[in-house]
Amino acid sequence: MSVVTLKIDDRDVSGRDDETILEIARENGIVIPTLCYLEGLSIAGACRLCLVEVKGSSKLLPACATRVSEGMEVSTQSERLTHYRRMIIEMLFAEGNHICSVCVSNGHCQLQDAAVALGVDHIGVPYLYPNRTVDASHELFGIDHNRCILCARCVRVCDEVEGAHTWDVGARGIEARVITDFRTPWGDSDTCTSCGKCVQVCPTGALFAKGKSAGEMMKQSEFVQYLVAMRGRQS
């Protein structure tokens, strides 16, 4: 491990060479939008919102998965990046069935927040109107697949932090869905411990606690980084 210096958005910053662009940016108060990333969980690199420009690379690189190196010059904001980030958000809205006004997470939704921050004021791609279901079989929680963006945070927190691995992704491509056990109704799952971590880390209203109505679902995902850090100290 060694310390490196680099430039992010023309600012001189430094960090360890085992840190990522995203981590160093956040330490320095530089905001890069993310959806699938959550501190404490493994890196997915799936939502592509955190793509940044790195001098000398013809490709855009995911800030969450790219280690910093000495002399690196990173741009986290540009017209081009905003264009792609907006399209990603538009694609997510068009892919599911998102009706913010009646959603439990309205006002506390990371997809909504990202859309506002990026100035997405209309959806430029056709809505796909998929036929998706709601599973309300669990005593405490529910999942509305219409609002799922397949970030797989629930899958990772359940496996990596709770250790239950109740969730995974079934099928593939545009048909992919998060599933519990053998696509068993959640309430009948043999492995679910009902800990609720998946609900707390879900960035949208897809996973929710029962009994909440529109706009009432507030989530706390910071526990993940604390749990992970504490476990690191005990081992």
């Binding site: 799936a46 694609m91 997510l92 963006i149 593939r172 545009i174």
Partner: peptide, 13 residues
Amino acid sequence: CGKCVPCRVGTAQ
């Protein structure tokens, strides 16, 4: 595979 948004949704679009 459906993991990343551009490929999953973009190819369908």
